[in-house]
Simulated scan of single mutants.
Amino acid sequence: MDTISPDSPQYVYEQLAAIIERKIRSGEYAPGTRLPGELTMTHDYKVGPGTVRRALDILRDRGLVVTVRARGSFVADPLPPFPETPEPSA
């Protein structure tokens, strides 16, 4: 699902980060490719520029995106592995 839900308990920027991460992990945005610009994302997802920047901050922190000043944001190459899921406690 690539839509932002204002009724979700999750912050809008977290929802956007999850959408972009899904696109990266699925291969829609391949490693090394440039992501759409902030302005494009604000129009596509109907969010403000601050929301897009915060979502990109999350993705940078996860090692999925690299931003180059005056060039844009790119999918990391190579991608980091999926985060480990904790084992359930017995």
Results as ranks from 00 to 15, higher is better:
Leu16Pro: 00
Pro81Glu: 10
Ala55Trp: 04
Ser89Cys: 01
Ala70Arg: 15
Ile19Glu: 12
Leu35Val: 10
Asp77Glu: 15
Gly72Tyr: 08
Ala55Ile: 10
Pro88Ala: 06
Glu28Thr: 12
Arg22Cys: 01
Asp61Lys: 10
Arg69Thr: 12
Gly63Gln: 09
Thr42Pro: 01
Phe74Gln: 02
Gly72Lys: 08
Pro31Gln: 09
Asp61His: 13
Arg62Asp: 15
Gly72Asp: 09
Asp7Ser: 11
Ile24Glu: 09
Ala17Thr: 08
Gln10Val: 10
Val65His: 05
Gly63His: 13
Ala30Pro: 02
Arg25Gln: 10
Val66Lys: 14
Gly37Leu: 04
Lys46Met: 07
Ala17Glu: 08
Ile4His: 04
Glu14Arg: 06
Ile20Phe: 07
Asp7His: 08
Arg53Phe: 02
Tyr11Gly: 01
Leu39Thr: 13
Lys46His: 13
Val65Trp: 00
Glu87Phe: 06
Val68Lys: 15
Tyr13Asn: 04
Gly72Ala: 04
Asp7Tyr: 09
Arg54Gly: 00
Leu39Asn: 11
Pro88His: 07
Arg71Asn: 05
Ala70Gly: 00
Glu38Cys: 02
Tyr45Thr: 02
Pro80Glu: 13
Ile58Pro: 00
Thr85Arg: 12
Ala17Val: 05
Pro9Lys: 08
Gln15Glu: 13
Pro9Arg: 12
Met41Glu: 09
Arg53Gln: 14
Thr51Trp: 01
Gly27Gln: 14
Phe74His: 06
Ser8Val: 11
Ser26Tyr: 09
Ala17Gln: 05
Lys23Glu: 14
Arg53Ala: 06
Pro36Cys: 03
Tyr11Glu: 12
Asp2Pro: 03
Pro83Glu: 12
Val68Asn: 09
Ala30Gln: 14
Met41Asn: 04
Thr67Gln: 14
Thr85Lys: 07
Ser26Ala: 13
Leu64Ala: 00
Ala76Tyr: 08
Leu64Ile: 08
Pro31Asp: 10
Leu64Val: 07
Asp77Tyr: 06
Thr40Met: 06
Ile24Ser: 01
Ala76Gly: 01
Pro78Tyr: 12
Pro83Ile: 06
Leu16Cys: 02
Gly37Tyr: 07
Leu59Ile: 09
Glu14His: 06
Thr67Gly: 04
Asp77Thr: 06
Thr42Asp: 05
Ile58Leu: 14
Leu56Arg: 13
Pro86Val: 09
Arg69Tyr: 15
Pro9His: 13
Thr3Asp: 11
Gly48Thr: 15
Lys46Ser: 07
Thr67Leu: 03
Gly72Thr: 10
Pro49Phe: 00
Arg25Asp: 12
Val12Asn: 02
Phe74Val: 10
Leu64Asn: 02
Ala70Cys: 01
Gly32Ser: 09
Ala76Ile: 09
Pro83Gly: 02
Ala55Phe: 06
Glu38Leu: 04
Glu87Cys: 00
Met41Trp: 02
Met1Thr: 11
Val68Phe: 12
Pro31Glu: 14
Leu35Met: 11
Ile19Pro: 00
Tyr45Pro: 01
Pro49Asp: 14
Glu21Asn: 03
Tyr45Lys: 00
Arg62Met: 08
Met1Leu: 07
